[in-house]
């Protein structure tokens, strides 16, 4: 395991959501803490080629092309190489059934995408803490 600062890798196909999250991390003073890939497949490909040494937290959008959030989660949690990395599901709507499935599959949190700038900042803070301090799973 690398001793350098660990990063958050977010699989997010929506450019605007990436902008929002990027702005949130910029606002809390850690613009480089978060990195993006375009979907679940890209995330797995990256792990295969570059490994997971510097990854402290995975954030998965649910609706993505090729490999969606819950499928990606299932693969990650059934692979010994990746199953130790905490995963946060980041979704548009609160869907109780979806939430339950994801938590069962091993997600540590199910977070609804914030609908204001102010709450985005709070969410980014929470994700940052989760990555660096490996705090207890939280759901919002």
């Amino acid at each position: 395991m690398s001793k350098g600062p660990r990063h958050i890798l977010a699989a997010e196909d929506d450019l605007e959501d990436r902008f929002m999250m990027q702005e949130g991390f910029r606002e809390i003073g850690h613009p480089d803490k978060i990195r993006f890939c375009e979907d679940g497949q890209a995330l797995l490909d990256q792990f295969e080629s570059s490994g997971t040494a510097d990854i402290g937290l995975i954030v998965l959008d649910l609706n993505m092309p090729r490999l969606n959030g819950s499928e990606t989660l299932r693969i990650l949690k059934s692979d010994k190489r990746y199953s130790h990395i905490p995963v946060v599901i980041f979704s548009t709507s609160i869907n109780e059934i979806e939430k339950e499935i994801c938590l069962k599959l091993g997600a540590c949190a199910y977070v609804t995408k914030p609908s204001t700038w102010t709450s985005y900042i709070a969410t980014c803070n929470m994700l940052y803490k989760l990555c660096t301090e490996q705090t207890l799973p939280v759901t919002t």
Partner: peptide, 18 residues
């Protein structure tokens, strides 16, 4: 509808604050 609405919410708040 929630998706674009959420973004309108975000941008208006973003504009407001910044």
């Amino acid at each position: 509808l929630q998706e674009p609405l959420r973004k309108i919410g975000f941008y208006s708040d973003y504009l407001d604050k910044k």
